[in-house]
Simulated scan of single mutants.
Amino acid sequence: MKLPQHANVSSGVDRRHFLGASLGLIAATSLGGLARPASAASPILLPPLPYADSALAPVISANTIGFHYGKHHKGYVDNLNRLLAGSDLADLPLEKIVAAVTGKADKTAIFNNAAQIWNHTFYWNSLRPNGGGEPPVALKQKIEASFGSVDALKKELATAALGQFGSGWAWLVADGDKLKVVKTGNADLPAAGLKPLLTIDVWEHAYYLDYQNRRADYVNALLDKLINWEFALKNLG
């Protein structure tokens, strides 16, 4: 698996504090699988999928899950543990590792692998079998206040996912009381102060085995049939 050579960190933005405002809060609740064992310098673990590898079919096949989760996601975990061995970061939880290396050119490889572990775990939880449909009332009200309608939000998420040149992510985030859609490239995460609610992976390995170059078909099917509104509401708090 070939990893990106550089993290796509937006210039002029203090990205080093993003976890304190957003990701750390979510990791402590929704993504409990990210926690590492209590013993010092124990390896980062591959979090289990929240469903069977065939549970998202036919939108995302078991074959795609096998490669995406079993090869790519696992590869980030294996690479990160190799990169951390013997370092002063080796006994830190994942979120603190990402925060410690964000924006540091000499730690790009660690950032890429650590952030991709976090992003992928968040992505798996952003999907669920028989998802889509109407969001819970509390979330729907927030969506309507920010976008006008659920359909308008889905259109904006699709536009962000399709407009991301190359590899990256489309995110629904909370910015204070308002919801927004943002996109990031490669392993990058939303900027400081934005709380991720759900994400769509638009790296080619997320869809190419099932959809080839038809990213739009993948994104639209995911939004209609798999998106996990309950996860977004839980993250909204």
Rank of each mutant, 00 (worst) to 15 (best):
2 K>F: 08
5 Q>E: 15
9 V>D: 12
11 S>D: 13
13 V>R: 09
14 D>G: 11
15 R>T: 12
16 R>G: 04
17 H>W: 11
19 L>G: 14
20 G>Q: 14
22 S>H: 06
22 S>P: 01
27 A>G: 13
28 A>D: 13
34 L>R: 03
36 R>W: 06
39 S>W: 10
40 A>P: 08
40 A>G: 02
41 A>K: 11
42 S>W: 11
42 S>K: 13
44 I>E: 01
44 I>H: 02
45 L>G: 11
47 P>M: 04
49 L>P: 03
49 L>Y: 07
51 Y>G: 07
51 Y>A: 11
56 L>E: 05
57 A>D: 10
57 A>W: 06
57 A>N: 06
59 V>W: 00
59 V>M: 00
61 S>C: 04
62 A>I: 03
62 A>T: 09
63 N>F: 13
65 I>W: 01
65 I>S: 01
69 Y>Q: 09
71 K>M: 15
71 K>S: 15
72 H>Y: 15
74 K>D: 11
74 K>F: 13
78 D>L: 15
79 N>V: 03
79 N>F: 01
81 N>V: 01
81 N>I: 02
82 R>I: 14
84 L>Y: 03
85 A>P: 05
85 A>S: 12
86 G>M: 12
87 S>R: 07
89 L>E: 00
89 L>K: 08
89 L>W: 05
91 D>H: 06
93 P>W: 00
98 V>K: 00
98 V>G: 02
99 A>C: 04
101 V>P: 03
106 D>Y: 05
108 T>K: 10
111 F>S: 00
114 A>H: 01
114 A>L: 03
125 N>Y: 05
126 S>T: 03
127 L>W: 01
128 R>S: 06
129 P>A: 06
132 G>L: 01
135 P>V: 05
135 P>D: 09
136 P>I: 02
136 P>Y: 02
141 Q>D: 12
142 K>A: 12
143 I>Q: 08
144 E>R: 07
144 E>N: 11
147 F>N: 04
154 K>F: 14
154 K>D: 11
162 L>C: 11
164 Q>W: 03
164 Q>N: 08
166 G>P: 07
166 G>F: 08
168 G>Y: 09
171 W>H: 03
172 L>C: 06
173 V>M: 07
174 A>G: 11
175 D>Q: 13
176 G>F: 08
179 L>P: 05
180 K>G: 07
183 K>Y: 09
184 T>W: 05
184 T>R: 12
186 N>E: 14
186 N>D: 14
191 A>G: 14
192 A>N: 15
194 L>W: 04
194 L>G: 05
198 L>W: 03
199 T>Y: 06
202 V>E: 06
207 Y>V: 07
209 L>E: 13
209 L>V: 09
210 D>R: 00
212 Q>T: 12
213 N>G: 04
220 N>I: 12
225 K>C: 04
225 K>A: 09
228 N>H: 04
234 K>P: 06
236 L>N: 14
